[in-house]
Amino acid sequence: MDSINTKAWYVAKKNVKEKLKNYGSMFWTIFFPIMMLIVYKLVFTDDGNNDGTELINGLTVFDLEFPGIVVYTIGISTLTSAVMFSVSKKNGTLERLDSMPVGRGNIFLGAVLSETIFMNLQLVLVFGFGYGILGAYFEPTMFFLGYIIAMIYGIGAIGLGLIIASFTNSPEAANGIGMMTHMILMFTSGSFFPFESPCVYFTPQFWVKQVYLQSTVLGHSFSDKLYSGSMIGYSSDPISITILGGIFIIIFFTMTFIFIGLMLFQKKTKL
């Protein structure tokens, strides 16, 4: 077990070094979320003119939409992991690793570790900017829960990246399809902009944003009902699923994506 963890750690370390030198990936993972935060702050903040931007208990649209930026930031792992696995498939490094005394389990664990390290870095930056500099509102007691939810979702996003990498033949294709998938899911889940429709329930992003919003921003408890969108008390109504139920749905999506991703990638790359 010790050697399994050690080798996975070295795979992760190598992946992080590679990611840090990929400036395109750095833009989408680090700078784009910060840019979005600034845009959201400028567009959705209360301008003091009492024009309806102040919605619930003094919270602005920016406060309510901040979880959407967290979902975007973490979900970008779909794109970066799809590219990472696709590169290893295309340039033969996966095959080279297969000839070494390191199992696929270690390779996947190393990939998840490296993505998790990056997700943490992203969250630190987004939380620092959002909460620290731009003053987004959050309930301090529920902050840790929000962090855990984001991480669970992030692992699912890696699974989705694996699924994409299984079907794409080049890193360029993985990049394009990964970005397209992520953005479509972001918009159809109402994570970027409030979107009220039954279709949102089929996206993991909706559950992550709603659970994160209601627990971390609004301070709701596990037994409280989830709402159909982020415009709570405005256009969103309660649904029959509680916040705890929402957490289970996020876990279900994560496990499903990881399981399908691992199965497909193994099947497609096993020579």
């Binding site: 190598k14 070094k17 590679e18 030198k21 990929n22 340039n91 033969g92 490094t93 095959e95 080279r96």
Partner: peptide, 11 residues
Amino acid sequence: CPQENVIFEAL
């Protein structure tokens, strides 16, 4: 030692 240069290019 594979036929193609299989190296981690960024390292």
